[in-house]
Write a protein that binds this DNA or RNA. Structure first.
Length: 1058
RNA sequence: GGGCCCGUAGCUCAGCCUGGUGGAGCGCUCGGCUGAUAACCGAGAAGUCGGGGGUUCGAAUCCCCCCGGGCCCA
C-alpha cells in the first residue's frame, strides 16, 4: 500500500495523540501481547523493581522518574529480544503507615491501639489504606506509559511474602547470626515506645542545664578531669570518659585545683566558669590520658555504680569528641548514648539504662529512684554535685532537642532489649560479594564499599504492629527458643495455621515446646520495615515455595534506584543475599538522581516549590515528561523547570513536521514502501550520508543502552531527528521531491527517508513510546498493514555497518563548514541569500580538501546560493592582498633625512608593489636619483586588505571568500525570487493543493523591472506552477494582491487553472 | 565530624576518565527564509570553567585545601 496523506491533514496535538495511543494499547491488549512475545525468548532478563512505599494516593515526580527510567530500559531489553521479568512491587509495612492510621482513628499511643481500637481493627485499617494507595499509585505509573506486570505485583503484606521473610530469619538463626541484645534508641516516655531514626525528625528549642563537672583522678591530689554535659540525669549511669588521642590537652592550675581539658576549649571554659587566674602546668596529646582512672562524684549514691565503677577510666574515642563544644572530655553513659554504646560495647561495658519506660529513674539509680529524668532527677543531681564540690560551673543552654512528633514530649536515648542480626560477623563476605556487582556510575561503588566496610549489627525488632511478625517463639516454662521458618514449622510444633500472618492473629498461635512440652508464645515484636524490601529478590519470586523460578532467574540482571538507596535498598539486598544465599543478589546497579526545584533545593509542600504528579500531568504531555526526565544525566539531580520542559517540547513539533513533510510528498507521489531495496536504488550522496548517520546512531544508541547511559541515548535520538533529518537532509532533498516527474532520484530520496524514519521510530519507542506508536500506526503501518500491531512488537536493530561511511560524514561536515563561512561572508557583505553569488573562492592548506569540495560542490552551491566554486592555492589570497603603507617617520627620518619626501612620494606611487615585497622578502630596493635605497618592513606600518569586491572569511579549513560583484542578471534573478515567494504565499492563502496549476498576472509601473521579470519567465513559471504569465491587470475572478518589492509597487494575480 | 556527588555563557547542561586555542540548546540583539510555517536559517554579544594553591612546556580536565548545594551517615 502507498503512504496516505492523513498525517499531513491532521493538526498536531500531542495530548490527543496520547489519548488515542492509550486507548489503542488497551483495546488491542498490547502489553499482554508484548509479554507473550517476550516470554517465548530464552534470553532471560531479571529486572528487580525496588518497591515504592505505599503511603500516599499519588506519586512524587522523583518516583515518576524512577519508574520511567525502569520502563525505558525494560522496553529496550524487550525490543532486543529478551525475556524480561518485570514484576513491580510495593513496600507496605512500617511505622509511618501505622502513625497515619493512628491519626485517622484518633489514637494517642500504643495503649490506645490495644485497648480502644483493637489490634485486629488497626491492622485491617492499615491493610485497606495500603491497598487503596497501591491501586492509586499503579494508575499513576500506567498513566506515563510504564509497561510492567501491574496485574501481578509483589506486595510485602501478603502472607506468602511474610512466610518468605521468615525463611531468612531462620537461615540467620541456623547460621548463628540471630541474637537478642541491647541497643540505644530514641524513646518517647509518654507514648512508651521506641522511635525509629526516621521518626526523630522534630526538634524544639529547649533550655537545659549546661554544667562542667569535675571527675577526680584516682591517686592524684586535687586533680580532676573536667567534663561537660547538658543531661545531668545521665551522670548516674556514667561508665567512662572519652577523649581524642590526637588533639592537644592541657592541665591547668586554678583555685588550688588541677583541671584537665582540651587546649582548644580552655579560653571558653575559663570565661564561662569565671576563673580569674590560672596557669598552664602541662600540655600533652590526648593519647597520654588513655587508661587514666577516676572517681565518680556520685559513686556512693547510685547503686548501679557498684557495677559501673570498674570501668571508670579515660578511653580513646575520636569519633565522640566534637570540637567547638564541651571540654574535649566526654562523659559516657553507654545506656543513654549512641556513640557511648558503640564505644562501650568494644570495651565490654554493659548497657545500663537507669530510666524506665515512663521516664522515671529506676531503683538502681539509688538516691534518685522515682524521679523524672529531665526535671526532678536533674535538679537533685545538680544539688548533690554542688554539695560534693564536684560542680565547676552551672549554666544554662538553649538548644535544639528532639521531641516526639506526635505528643511533643522531649525524647531520651535509652538502651532496650532488641533482636539483632550479627552482620559484623559476615563483613568479609559482604565485601567480597559487593565487589561482584557492577555499578553505574562507577563512583557509586566506592560509596557503597565505604558503607559496607562500616557495617554494624542490624536491629531487626520493633515493638509495633504493622509489620512482618518476628518468627520467634519462647517457651513460658523453660524459655527455650524456636525460630520458625515457614507455616510447616508451625504445624510441626502442634501449632494451628493462623487465618492471617499479621498480629494479632499470629500471636494466638501457641506452639508446644519440643524441650519440655510447655506452651510457647511468640515474642511480640515485628520486623524493621527495611527487612521487607531487602528480601524482594527471592520473596517476590515466591521462594522458597517455588524454587525453580528463583533458580532460573537469579541473580537480578539489573536494579536501579535513587542514590539515597545506596545505604538503603542496595545495601539491604546485599545483606539479605549474603545471610540467606551467600551471594550478592544482583549483577548491575544503576543510580539515578533526585528531583529538586529550579534552585536545586528539595521540593517541599511547605516551601511552596512542590510540583505534584497531578499538576505535571495536567500541564504536560506524557512523552514530553518522559523525555525531560530521561535526558537528564541519570545519576545527577534534576533541577525541575517548567521552562526547561517547554523548550524540550519544541522538539516534538519538529518530529511531527518531519513526518508530516514525508507523508505529504510521499502520498502526493503515491510512494509505496513495500518491497523496496535500498541497494537497488541510485542513491545520491546525501542519501548515503543520512544512512551512514542513521546507522551510526543505531550503533551508539545500542552502546549507550547497554552501558546504561540512557540520557546519552535519549539526547542522540532527538539530535538525530532535529539536526540530521530536519535541519539538513530535508533541506537537501527539497529540490528532488519538488520535481514533477517520477525520477529515480526522487524515488531514492523517498526510500531513504522512509527507511530512516521507520528505524528512528524503533529507537525512539523506549523513550517516547506514545508518539512513536502513533507515527508507526499512521505513517508506517498504514502503508505496511502486515506489520505487527504495535511498534513494541518489533525489534531494535543492530547497526548495518556497511552503511557507515565515516569519510562521507566528515565530507559533509566540511561542506557544512564552508556553507556556514560563506553565509557569514554574505552577512558581512550585506548580500542576502536570495541574490546568487557569482563565485566562491576557497583556498586551503590541506590536500584532499580540494577533492572533497569538488565532490560536495552541488550542496555548497545549493545551500549557499553560489554559481561557481573555485578552489585555489593559498598563494591566491596572498597575491590578492592589497597593502597599505603608513610611513614610520621615527625610523625613516634618521636613515634618509633629506631625500625622505621623495621616498614617501615614490612609496605612494608603488604602494602595492612595495607592500608585497616587504611582506614577502622583508625589504624593497628603490631607485632615487640613481641611488639604491633599501626599504625595510620596520620603516612602515603595513596594513593588508583585500580588494573591495572580495569578502574574505578565515576559518580552520582555510580562507574562504565570495565575489561580491553581483551582475545585473543575477540581480534580476534575485528579484524573480521575490516574485516567486509572493506567488507561493498567495497560493497558500487560497489553499491550493501543492500540485495544482495556476494562471498568473503581473503588472508594475517599473518597466525595467518588468523586463527583468520577463527574462526569467520560465523560471518563475516552473517554480510557481504557472501555466502562463500575463503582463496585464489581473481579471476580477482572480485572486490579486498589491505588493511592495524594494520600493516598487507590483500587482500580482493568480487563478486556479482547471 | 565522615564518605560520595555536583558547581562551566543570563538559564539548562555537554566537555573532565585519557591535559593541547572553552562547546550546545534556550534566551537576548540584528538579519534572512517562506508550500514542514505556532516551523526554519544565519550572524553577533555574552565565560575569573565556584575560589586558592600545586604538578606540567601547557590545567575546565590531574593532585591538595577552601567555599556553596545535594545524598547518606555520625
Amino acid at each position: 500500500m502507498i503512504i496516505d496523506d492523513k498525517l499531513t491533514k491532521e493538526k498536531y496535538n500531542q495530548k490527543s495523540i496520547e489519548e488515542w495511543v492509550m486507548n489503542y494499547w488497551k483495546d488491542k491488549e498490547i502489553y499482554k501481547k508484548i509479554k507473550e512475545k517476550s516470554n517465548r525468548s530464552n534470553k532471560k532478563f531479571y529486572f528487580l523493581d525496588g518497591p515504592p512505599y505505599a503511603n500516599a494516593k499519588t506519586i512524587h515526580v522523583g518516583t515518576l522518574w524512577n519508574k520511567v527510567l525502569k520502563d525505558t530500559l525494560l522496553r529496550y531489553y524487550r525490543m532486543k529480544g529478551f525475556n524480561v521479568w518485570d514484576k513491580p512491587g510495593f513496600d507496605t509495612h512500617g511505622l509511618p503507615i501505622e502513625v497515619m492510621i493512628e491519626k485517622e482513628l484518633g489514637s494517642n499511643n500504643k495503649k490506645d491501639i490495644v485497648n480502644k481500637i483493637g489490634v485486629d481493627n488497626f491492622i485491617n485499617r492499615c491493610l485497606a489504606f495500603v491497598k487503596e494507595n497501591i491501586s492509586a499509585m499503579t494508575k499513576d505509573f500506567q498513566e506515563v506509559g510504564v509497561f510492567m506486570d501491574w496485574d501481578n505485583p509483589y506486595l510485602t503484606y501478603e502472607d506468602s511474602y511474610i512466610e518468605s521473610g521468615w525463611y531468612l530469619i531462620k537461615k540467620a538463626y541456623e547460621k548463628d547470626l540471630l541474637y537478642k541484645g541491647k541497643n540505644v534508641l530514641h524513646w518517647c516516655p509518654r507514648c512508651e515506645t521506641t522511635l525509629a531514626d526516621y521518626e526523630v525528625s522534630e526538634y524544639k528549642e529547649l533550655e537545659d542545664p549546661s554544667v562542667y563537672v569535675k571527675f577526680k583522678v584516682k591517686n592524684e591530689e586535687n586533680t580532676y578531669l573536667l567534663i561537660w554535659t547538658t543531661t545531668p540525669w545521665t551522670l548516674p549511669a556514667n561508665a567512662f570518659v572519652m577523649a581524642h588521642p590526637d588533639i592537644d590537652y592541657v592541665m591547668i592550675e586554678a583555685n588550688n585545683e588541677k583541671l584537665i581539658l582540651s587546649k582548644e576549649r580552655l579560653d571558653k571554659v575559663v570565661e564561662e566558669s569565671r576563673i580569674k587566674e590560672y596557669k598552664i602546668i602541662k600540655e600533652f596529646k590526648g593519647k597520654e590520658l588513655e587508661g587514666l582512672e577516676y572517681v565518680h562524684p556520685l559513686e556512693e549514691l547510685v547503686k548501679a555504680q557498684n557495677e559501673l565503677k570498674k570501668y571508670h577510666k579515660v578511653v580513646m574515642a575520636p569519633e565522640a569528641v566534637v570540637s567547638g563544644e564541651g571540654t574535649g572530655l566526654v562523659h559516657s553513659a553507654p545506656g543513654h548514648g549512641e556513640i557511648d554504646a558503640i564505644v562501650g560495647s568494644k570495651l565490654g561495658v554493659p548497657l545500663i539504662s537507669l530510666v524506665n519506660d515512663q521516664g522515671f529513674m529506676i531503683e538502681d539509680a539509688g538516691k534518685y529512684a522515682g524521679l523524672y529524668f529531665r526535671t526532678d532527677a536533674n535538679n537533685e543531681i545538680l544539688k548533690d554535685l554542688k554539695e560534693k564540690k564536684a560542680l565547676l560551673h552551672l549554666g544554662k543552654i538553649k538548644h535544639r532537642y528532639p521531641v516526639c512528633w506526635r505528643c511533643k514530649t522531649p525524647l531520651l536515648l535509652r538502651a532496650t532489649e532488641q533482636w539483632f542480626i550479627k552482620v559484623s560477623k559476615i563483613k568479609e563476605k559482604l565485601i567480597n560479594e559487593a565487589n561482584n556487582a557492577e555499578w553505574v556510575p562507577q563512583w557509586a561503588k566506592d560509596r557503597f564499599m565505604n558503607i559496607v566496610g562500616n557495617v554494624r549489627d542490624w536491629v531487626i525488632s520493633r515493638q509495633r504492629f504493622w509489620g512482618i511478625p518476628l518468627p520467634v517463639w519462647e517457651c513460658e516454662n523453660c524459655h527455650h527458643i524456636e525460630v520458625i521458618g515457614s507455616l510447616d514449622d508451625i504445624l510441626k510444633l502442634n501449632g494451628k495455621r493462623p487465618s492471617n500472618m499479621h498480629r494479632p492473629w499470629i500471636d494466638e498461635v501457641i506452639l508446644k515446646c519440643p524441650k519440655c512440652g510447655g506452651q510457647m508464645k511468640r515474642v511480640s515484636d515485628v520486623l524493621d520495615v527495611w527487612f521487607d524490601s531487602g528480601i524482594a529478590f527471592y520473596a517476590s519470586l515466591n521462594y522458597p515455595r517455588n524454587k525453580d523460578l528463583y533458580e532460573n532467574l537469579s541473580p537480578a540482571d539489573l536494579i536501579l534506584e535513587g542514590h539515597d538507596q545506596t545505604r538503603g535498598w542496595f545495601f539491604s539486598l546485599l545483606r539479605s543475599g549474603v545471610i540467606g544465599f551467600d551471594s550478592v543478589p544482583y549483577k548491575r546497579v544503576l543510580l539515578h538522581g533526585f528531583v529538586l526545584d529550579e534552585q536545586g533545593r528539595e521540593m517541599h509542600k511547605s516551601l511552596g516549590n512542590y510540583v505534584s504528579f497531578e499538576e505535571l500531568m495536567s500541564k504536560e504531555p506524557r512523552d514530553v515528561v518522559r523525555l525531560y526526565v530521561l535526558q537528564n544525566t541519570t545519576w545527577e539531580d534534576l533541577k525541575f523547570s517548567w521552562k526547561g520542559i517547554e523548550q524540550l517540547s519544541r522538539n516534538f513539533t519538529i518530529i511531527w513536521n518531519v513526518f508530516s513533510f514525508a507523508s505529504m510528498y510521499m502520498s502526493l507521489d503515491k510512494f509505496d514502501p513495500n518491497n523496496i531495496k535500498l541497494d537497488n536504488l541510485t542513491l545520491e550522496i546525501e542519501d548515503k550520508w543520512l544512512l551512514s548517520r542513521l546507522n551510526n546512531l543505531i550503533r551508539n544508541f545500542n552502546k549507550y543502552y547497554s552501558s546504561l547511559e540512557v540520557h546519552n541515548a535519549a539526547r542522540l535520538v532527538i539530535d538525530f531527528i532535529v539536526e540530521d533529518v530536519s535541519h539538513w537532509y530535508l533541506k537537501l532533498i527539497r529540490k528532488r521531491v519538488w520535481e514533477d516527474e517520477d525520477t529515480p532520484s526522487k524515488r531514492a530520496a523517498y526510500a531513504t527517508l522512509y527507511y530512516v524514519l521507520k528505524n528512528w521510530l524503533l529507537l525512539s519507542t523506549p523513550i517516547i513510546p506514545f508518539i512513536s506508536e502513533y507515527l508507526y500506526q499512521k505513517f508506517v503501518r498504514s502503508a505496511e498493514p502486515n506489520l505487527p500491531e504495535s511498534i513494541s512488537l518489533l525489534e531494535i536493530p543492530d547497526a548495518n555497518l556497511s552503511y557507515i561511511d565515516e569519510k562521507l560524514e566528515s565530507k559533509m561536515e566540511l561542506a557544512k563548514k564552508i556553507i556556514e563561512n560563506t553565509l557569514s561572508a554574505r552577512m558581512k557583505a550585506g548580500i542576502k541569500i536570495r541574490l546568487p553569488i557569482k563565485s566562491l573562492i576557497v583556498s586551503t592548506h590541506e590536500n584532499g580538501i580540494k577533492d572533497i569540495i569538488i565532490e560536495m560542490k552541488p550542496y555548497i552551491k545549493e545551500m549557499a546560493n553560489v554559481k561557481d566554486i573555485q578552489v585555489v592555492g593559498k598563494e591566491f589570497f596572498e597575491q590578492a592582498k592589497i597593502y597599505k603603507l603608513e610611513p614610520n617617520y621615527k625610523e625613516l627620518g634618521p636613515s634618509f633625512k633629506k631625500i625622505l619626501p621623495m621616498i614617501v612620494q615614490e612609496v605612494k606611487n608603488k604602494e602595492e608593489e612595495i607592500g608585497q615585497s616587504l611582506v614577502k622578502n622583508g625589504y624593497y630596493e628603490l631607485n632615487i636619483n640613481g641611488e639604491k635605497i633599501k626599504l625595510e618592513a620596520k620603516h612602515f606600518k603595513i596594513q593588508a586588505t583585500y580588494p573591495e569586491w572580495l569578502e574574505v572569511s578565515e576559518s580552520d579549513i582555510g580562507v574562504i571568500a565570495i565575489d561580491k560583484r553581483v551582475s545585473e542578471e543575477e540581480h534580476s534573478e534575485g528579484l524573480a525570487r521575490d516574485i516567486i515567494r509572493r506567488i507561493q504565499y498567495m497560493r497558500k492563502e487560497l489553499g491550493l493543493p501543492v500540485d495544482a496549476y495556476i494562471e498568473t498576472w503581473i503588472t508594475t509601473d517599473d518597466n525595467e523591472y518588468l523586463y527583468n521579470i520577463k527574462a526569467l519567465e520560465g523560471y518563475i513559471k516552473n517554480e510557481t506552477r504557472s501555466k502562463s504569465i500575463n503582463y496585464i491587470s489581473p481579471p476580477d475572478d482572480s485572486y490579486s494582491k498589491e505588493w511592495e518589492v524594494e520600493e516598487r509597487r507590483i500587482i500580482i494575480g493568480i487563478k486556479l487553472k482547471q
